[in-house]
Structure formats: structure tokens, C-alpha cells
Amino acid sequence: MPFKVNKDRRHKIPRQRHRVTNWPAYEAGLRSRGSLTVWFTEDAIEGWRAAPRTTRGGQPSYSDLAIATALTLRAVFHLALRQTEGLIASILQLLGIDLAVPDHTTLSRRAETLEVPRPCGGQAPVHLLVDSTGLKFCGPGEWLTEKHGTRRRRSWRKLHLATDADTGRIVASVLTGHDADDGGQVGPLLERVDGPVASLTADGAYDRDDVHAEIMARHPEAEIIVPPRSSAVPSASARATPTARDRHLQIIAERGRMGWQRASGYNWRALVEADVSRWKRVIGDGLRSQTDGRQATEVAIAAEVLNRMLDLGRPEYVRIA
């Protein structure tokens, strides 16, 4: 990124300024993000009760749509399970709808196996932007560490995201342990992407042979935009059959790192960092669930929440300075 290349004189680089050109529509979308009518639709009311099962076992009282609706409200308004139960009960009472309310134990149990639909992809090839971040979920917090000097570190997990550069939507997400490497999750992310991939852009942590091989095996026509390491050298077949990495090294040798970033479109990777920041500000920087299955459901619902909010209104802006 430019600020990394110019880190020795970063204090002299002025901050970019932008002006939103569709402010009335974007402001209306921001207000709609807090409206209950957005999340409690007629489809949720009609499909609230579960369909009778044809196999042996107890009959479920609530459909997957009802559980997903409750967990969505929980993610949007940062509620505990009991408070989510109370919020849904009050909404149904205000609407005058005679529906049963799932209790907090039902929500917790069903979240373990709930299947959240994947984001729908179009037929056009997508330009993927990949990055990862950490999410805290248990252990002593910052206050306890500072107050009592405990050395036990807070546990956390790593969230891997793949977003569409054109729409800003999260098209795939993977939750792993904190010791999982970024490059090893390219395959699982691509498995969750429906449709063709035109390009994949990531930072230098993904400059690995297995990452390139994984992308080429699934999407041979995809362009790989990953900055080579500072110590990278061309491959043995660079002159006869240059790889994508060899071509990147050639452009860097001719134009420098900044010239390569502009020519390759690597600077668009800042959009996935903006999505990570949006996740932390809207959803939070932690996980409320304790088991792997519930955490996976929590992450999938959070990604769907951010995509819905983005559909309500997205800013269009131009640079003014």
C-alpha cells in the first residue's frame, strides 16, 4: 500500500478527502438499518412454524427461518439470547400476531446445526479480495489484565473473508483457530464461492506456491494479484513460460512497487480492509458463542446482516483532495 512504501515520510502525505454524491439515498439507507421492519418481514411470519417432519423423532416448533430471524436480531442489536427472546415477544405483541416465541435454550441449541444460505453469486466472474482478522471470544478482558496483572491471554479465533470488489458484498467466510495460516484458507474460501472468479487479490502473506496452485486448479483463467516478497526471484522458466508471479516481478523491476500497484489494481484490496472495519464497528470484535458450530452460524449470519445493510444503501463518492 502507498503508506507502507512511503512510511519514512508518511507524516507528510495528506489524507485523501472524498465527497458523497448520493447522500439523501445513502442517509435513508443508514436509517433503514435500524428499522425493525427490515428484519421482521411477512415471509418470516408466514414461515415461522416448522413443517411437520416425516421421520421419527420429536416435532420441531420453529422453522429455520424463525431461528435465523431471531439470531439476526441478536447480531444487529448486540443482544444476549434472553434479551433476544424478550425482543421478539414484544414485537409479536405489538404487531398482534399469535406466534410462539423460541426460548433462549432453543436458540442456542438450534444455532449449533442451523444451515445459513450462502450469499447468492451471479453469472458474471467476480473479482475477489481476501483478508483475515481476529475475533475474541473468551478469557480475561483488558480490564482484568490491567487490574490484576494476569498473564493468561484472551482466546481468539481468526476470520477469513472474501469480498466482491465490485459490490462490496461478502461472498465467502471461514472461521478457524488463531494458529491457522492465511494462505491455507484460500481453498475453503473458493469452495464457498458460487460461479467463476476473474481475479483474486491478497496481501503478501498469500505469496506461496500452494496458494497459486489452489487458485489455478479451481479457476485457471483467474488473475492472481499478490505482491511478491522483497526477496523473491523469478522462476527457472521465467523466460520461456513466465508465471503470474514472474510477470509481477518483471513489472516491479521496470516500474517499482508503486507502479506495480497501480498497473495491477492491487490498491483495490483496501476495500476488503474496509469490510473488516465495518464488521468490527457494526457486529463487534468478538464472538458470543462458545462451540464451533454456533460460532460458524454466528459468523454466517453476521455476513448476511452486513450484506443486507449494504443492499439498503451504498455511498457513491468522488475524490476532492
Rank of each mutant, 00 (worst) to 15 (best):
T243V: 03
C138M: 12
V282F: 07
R109M: 08
R169W: 11
R17Y: 14
V226P: 02
D182M: 02
A89G: 13
T291S: 12
S108V: 03
D194N: 14
G286V: 04
G265Q: 04
E142V: 09
H11Y: 12
Y266D: 05
T163I: 13
F77P: 01
V197P: 05
R9S: 14
G284F: 01
D164Q: 06
A75S: 13
V211Y: 02
T113M: 09
V272M: 05
D179L: 11
T201S: 07
T72V: 07
S199P: 06
P14H: 08
R192P: 01
I215N: 06
L94C: 12
Y266C: 07
M309V: 07
R281S: 09
E223R: 14
P14E: 09
P242C: 04
S237E: 13
W279C: 05
T106A: 08
T105V: 13
F77M: 08
L107P: 02
P14R: 11
V38H: 10
L189C: 07
P228H: 04
S235P: 02
R82L: 12
I67C: 00
D285Q: 10
A274V: 13
T133V: 05
E146A: 14
A100E: 12
W260C: 03
L65G: 10
D64Y: 07
A165D: 08
A172W: 01
P196I: 00
R169M: 14
G47L: 03
A253E: 08
N6F: 15
H11E: 15
A25K: 11
V116G: 01
G149T: 06
R245T: 00
G256R: 01
A25R: 11
A80E: 15
L73M: 10
L189P: 04
A303D: 07
D246V: 03
A303S: 11
E223W: 09
K280F: 00
G57V: 03
R319F: 09
V226S: 06
V186N: 02
G286S: 15
R15Y: 12
G34L: 07
L128I: 01
V101W: 04
G122H: 07
D207A: 05
N307L: 00
Q185L: 06
L249Q: 07
A274E: 11
L94T: 13
A270Q: 10
P140N: 06
I252G: 04
K7Q: 14
D285A: 06
L189R: 00
A75Q: 12
I301H: 02
P188C: 03
R152E: 13
G195T: 06
H178Q: 14
A44E: 12
H160S: 03
A172Y: 02
H78D: 15
T69L: 07
H18D: 15
T176H: 10
T291F: 04
Q123D: 15
A253L: 08
L312W: 03
L114N: 01
G256L: 00
I252M: 08
D292S: 14
A217Q: 10
A68K: 11
G122Y: 07
K158M: 03
V186K: 05
R192H: 11
A172K: 03
G34F: 08
E221S: 14
R17L: 14
D194H: 10
E27K: 14
W268E: 15
E146T: 11
A100M: 04
A124N: 09
H78A: 12
P102K: 04
D194I: 13
D207E: 06
K136W: 01
